[in-house]
Design a protein around this nucleic acid. Sequence first.
DNA 1: GTGATTGCAAATCTTTTGCACTAAA
DNA 2: TTTAGTGCAAAAGATTTGCAATCAC
Lengths: 153, 153
Amino acid sequence: MGMHGMSTARPYKHVLDRLQEAGLRPTRQRLALGRLLFEGEDRHVTAEQLHAEARHARISVSLATIYNTLHQFTAAGLLREVVVDAGRSYFDTNVHEHHHFFNEETGHLLDIEETRLSVSDLPPPPAGMCISRVDVIVRVARTEPAIKAQAAE
Amino acid sequence: MGMHGMSTARPYKHVLDRLQEAGLRPTRQRLALGRLLFEGEDRHVTAEQLHAEARHARISVSLATIYNTLHQFTAAGLLREVVVDAGRSYFDTNVHEHHHFFNEETGHLLDIEETRLSVSDLPPPPAGMCISRVDVIVRVARTEPAIKAQAAE
DNA sequence: GTGATTGCAAATCTTTTGCACTAAA
DNA sequence: TTTAGTGCAAAAGATTTGCAATCAC
């Protein structure tokens, strides 16, 4: 270790172990993408971003494989998909329960730890249904509430 | 009144007035779509659904116009866009602050009145940013937590 | 009439798929 | 080997755009 950076912000497991535990064959592409995704701090990426990053890092991976990999990782619990923007999918390396600030102007996501926010008085779900996940998205904009009308006060 | 239904669940304003207040020319298409959207109870629609509905009602409107109209209505504060599914946009006729249950299996949205749920301890937004909107999406599934593995156990 | 609006079809963008090829076990 | 995984290019959706035709004022 220690050949390409200084901070090992996530002392968790090696990418290889993660893949094996998830039952995913540790192929060159998965290992490479896994390193990009998991060896730094938690992050939020789109397929396109990860693809560009891989290209940068001289990793040869097709966009199709990026998508396949992101979904396989998600299915395996290694990533979590965050829906904040119709038309673009973000994948979050933080799979713990938490929420997000979303800057619509820049497309930037920022985690809000679960402990820092609480949702209460949640009504019971419709009959026969159970809650599988609660997502709180706090949309932010450059100061100046621009929020048209607001209608209710 | 009373020519096509029984309940006038929303005694608010006439579609014509709404459009004029919004500064939108009351064209045949906008009036027709506005009636479909605003003359019943609050609802959630996708462009495709509204298009099908219009066709059903013998209203001739192109999909492009449906999209334009939905966005114009949204910009005018007559609709609110709800992002719950990457790849599909839902438009909600309820523009008050509120949240949603989302059934991923059926793609069905159900309102949760704001008074029935509260988000507390929201941390302050990043410097220079202000909150423009808080969306809470409660994803539900047919009973049986199916939520795979849960990773930690 | 005049400019806003519409329709249509083509263009974009993101994501998925089919299939021959490659690589892990 | 044997089967999972990958790349590419084409397909599929959803949404947008350009522009001539149409409509509200």
